[in-house]
Amino acid sequence: MMVMPVASEETVRLTKKPVKIVIPPYGISIAESHHERGFVMPPTRNSYTKIYYILDGTADCFIERRAVPLERQQVLVIPRGATHFLRDKEGAPLSLYILAVRNNSLEHLASFNEQIELLSVLASKHLKPLTSHDYAAYDLPRKIRKILYEQRMQAAGFVPAIQANLLSLVVALNRIYLNIPVEQQFPGDKPTVNRIQHVAHYIEKNFFEPVSVENMARMACLSVRQFTNQFKAVYGVTFMQYLHFHRTRYAQRLLAETDQEIISICFSSGFNDLAHFYRIFKRYTSLSPRQFRLNAGYHSAKMAKHEH
């Protein structure tokens, strides 16, 4: 069985120089680094892609002589082969996780190798950090935590679990890069309407995830009261109504187009309680899920008859 290298005590102590990255045969590793005042990093080039997640502190990361400011809860991708180094801000040394990914980590999976190569290319074009307050980057810390957990626990099957979570992380990063212009400002600098729209777009793609008003307000960099008031002003409905609309619409599609059990559709649509699902579904459609399916089947059969 392959054993994942675990950070030694020296790795987690304050350091004045970069930690040594040890990548196992399957090509993925996470290290942590806590900088001491006076930390010095010489210009470095790596044969693998690096992903920084900033736990605390502020710094500039110089990538090919361009300064990229970093602060807490931001993610930065260092393209493979790019010359880079970190320079901490005075009085605010960095603490960070470093995810190192060899570009052929999953040799048996061509699609992954294409995704990691694409990540290096896109990161080179967008030399900027991704903030976890951004609607698209909101889920990145959770993905990194999953990889870190598997690395530390090393339970049965931890290697494929790490690889699966890594693929999910890389695809998420690529989707973010493919949808942001180089000059895009961070959401905290955007007008309130734009921040509300960011959250709405996030819900459209992630309505099945567990979400709360508090978390979405945090994503928009607004207080809960500001967020709820502004959301209704922009969309004419409350945030929860908007969320339930997208969950119910997806459930309608599954009821009409699949033979999934209703309890499975409830779960797939983001509901955790069947009675709650029935109540919300009937509120939006005036029908129970079972009645809706019967009606959808009737109309589908009728349409098919006319087509023939």
Rank of each mutant, 00 (worst) to 15 (best):
V6K: 11
E9L: 08
E10W: 07
T11Q: 09
K16W: 00
K17R: 10
K17Q: 10
Y26N: 06
S29N: 11
E32A: 09
E32H: 08
S33R: 03
G38C: 03
V40F: 08
T44W: 00
T44P: 00
S47N: 11
S47I: 01
Y48M: 00
Y48V: 00
Y48G: 00
T49A: 13
I51W: 04
L55S: 11
G57T: 04
T58R: 11
T58L: 03
D60E: 08
D60V: 00
I63M: 07
I63F: 03
E64T: 05
R65M: 10
P69K: 04
L70W: 02
E71P: 02
R72I: 06
V75E: 02
V75F: 08
L76E: 02
I78Y: 01
P79Y: 06
T83E: 15
H84A: 02
F85V: 02
L86V: 08
E90P: 08
P93D: 07
L94F: 02
L94G: 02
Y97A: 05
L99V: 02
V101R: 07
R102C: 04
R102F: 11
R102D: 09
N103V: 00
N104R: 14
S105G: 13
S105D: 10
S105Q: 12
E107L: 10
E107A: 13
E107N: 09
H108D: 14
L109R: 14
A110T: 13
A110Y: 15
A110G: 06
S111Y: 15
N113Y: 15
E117L: 10
E117N: 15
L118G: 12
L119W: 14
S120E: 07
L122P: 05
L122Q: 09
H133V: 13
D134I: 12
